[in-house]
Design a protein around this nucleic acid. Structure first.
Lengths: 193, 193
DNA sequence: ATCCTTTCTTAAGGTATCTTAACTTTTCTG
DNA sequence: CAGAAAAGTTAAGATACCTTAAGAAAGGAT
C-alpha cells in the first residue's frame, strides 16, 4: 500500500478529512526511506519534523555519559516517533532515532505543520491528542519503573508489545526495561514457562 | 494577594487576555481551600478538574500493591497539579492529590473548561503548552531515573527544586527519587559538604 | 558454504539499594 | 508545656541487579 494512504487512514481514524484536506496534507509530508541501522536524527541535532512510520521499525534512544544506551521508544507501522523534547523546545536532541528494519517514514517540517494547521484545523487537535496520549503512556511507564521489579516489567512488556518483541533484538528490550542484556537473559532463563 | 489575581497573572505570562476574558475565566474557576493532609483527589475517583495552586504546597502520589508511595509531582504556588492520566482518559485515578501545607486551589471543571475554550481561544493554547512541558519534564525525569545513581538524582533534585526541598518532608523526597527514606538518609550522611 | 559480526548466554564476584528494627529528633496537639 | 505522633537516623543483614569475561548461537556478507 502507498505510504500516503497509510498515513491518510491513520489520520482518519481520529479526525474527519475530506479529499481537499487530504491533498493539502499529502503536499506537506515528505517520504523518506531509511536503511536498517540508518539514522533519522542524531544527538546534537534539533528535531524539526514530526515523523510517521508507514512501514518498518525504529527506536529512539538516549546515550548517557558512560555510553550506555537507554531506549525510549520503539515504533512500528502507524506509530509516530520523534524526540518531542527537542522538537517542542527547539533545543538540540540528546537522542538518536534509528531504524531497526528498513523503513519508510513520512515526515512534515515544523514550519509546514504550522501552515497545515492553518489550512486543516483538525490537524492541531490530532497532534494535541497524540501528545496527550504520549504523556499518559510515559507516566504509566514511569510508575511501572518505580514500582515493579525487572521481571514484572519484562512480563508487562511482552504482554503489551508482543508484536514489537519479535522484531527487535533482546539487548534493546533490556535497554528499554532499564536493565543489562545479561540480566534480561537471566530473567528469561529463570522465568516460568 | 487575591487567588484569582495570582491565576490571572500566571495566565498572562503566557497568553494575552483582556478584561472581559479575565472575567469569563474568573467565572469558571472555583476557589477551594485544603487543609494540611487534606485530599483533593483520591485513588478510584475520576479527576474532573484542572487545578491551579494559588498558595500552599501539594503532591500527587501513587500507591502500589505493597502500599509503597511513589511521589509523582510536587507543586507550589503557580503550579498546576492533577492526575492528567485520569483527567484526559476519564478513567479512575490511581493517584492521590494531597496538601502538604494548607493550600488554596483554583479549579475548573472539565465541562466548564470546554465552554471556556470556546469563549477564550487562547486558553486552549495555554493548556496545550502546559501538557507539552509536562511531557518534556517527565521525559527528562525518566531519563535521569534510568541513567543516574540515586545520589546524583538527589543532587539534581536539590539544584532544581531548592524551594520545594525546604517545604516537604524528606521521606516524600525519597519517594520522589525512587528510593527508601533510610537510603536517602544514608546518602545525605555520606554526601560531600 | 564459510567467515566475520552481531547477539545471546552463563557464571562468578561485586555494588547499590532494600528491609527490618531500634533509637533519636522534631513537630503537633491539647 | 507535656505527651503523643511524625519524621529522621543508624546499622546489620539481605537481595536485585551489575560487571566482567568468555563462550555459544545466530545472522550477514562475500
Amino acid at each position: 500500500m502507498n505510504p500516503f494512504n497509510i498515513l491518510f487512514e491513520h489520520l482518519q481514524s481520529t479526525i474527519d478529512l475530506n479529499v481537499e484536506q487530504l491533498a493539502l496534507i499529502g503536499n506537506k509530508f515528505k517520504e523518506k526511506k531509511v536503511k536498517k541501522k540508518g539514522f533519522l536524527l542524531g544527538a546534537g541535532e534539533v528535531s524539526k519534523h514530526m515523523r510517521f512510520i508507514a512501514s518498518g521499525c525504529l527506536r529512539s534512544y538516549y546515550m548517557d555519559e558512560n555510553s550506555q544506551e537507554h531506549t525510549l521508544q520503539f515504533g512500528i507501522e502507524n506509530w509516530w516517533v520523534n524526540d518531542l523534547y527537542s522538537y517542542l523546545t527547539g533545543s538540540p536532541s540528546n537522542q538518536f532515532l534509528q531504524a531497526i528494519e528498513e523503513s519508510t517514514i513520512l515526515q512534515i517540517h515544523k514550519d509546514d505543520l504550522e501552515i497545515l494547521i492553518g489550512e486543516v484545523p483538525g490537524i492541531e487537535r490530532f497532534f494535541r491528542l497524540k501528545i496527550q496520549s504520549a504523556y499518559v503512556t510515559l507516566q504509566e511507564r514511569m510508575l511501572d519503573n518505580m514500582s515493579l521489579t525487572a521481571y514484572d516489567r519484562y512480563v508487562d512488556f511482552r504482554n503489551k508489545y508482543r508484536d514489537i518483541e519479535q522484531r527487535v533484538p533482546q539487548y534493546m528490550i533490556a535497554s528499554y526495561l532499564g536493565i543489562t542484556p545479561e540480566f534480561l537473559s537471566n530473567i528469561r532463563k529463570n522465568a516460568p514457562r
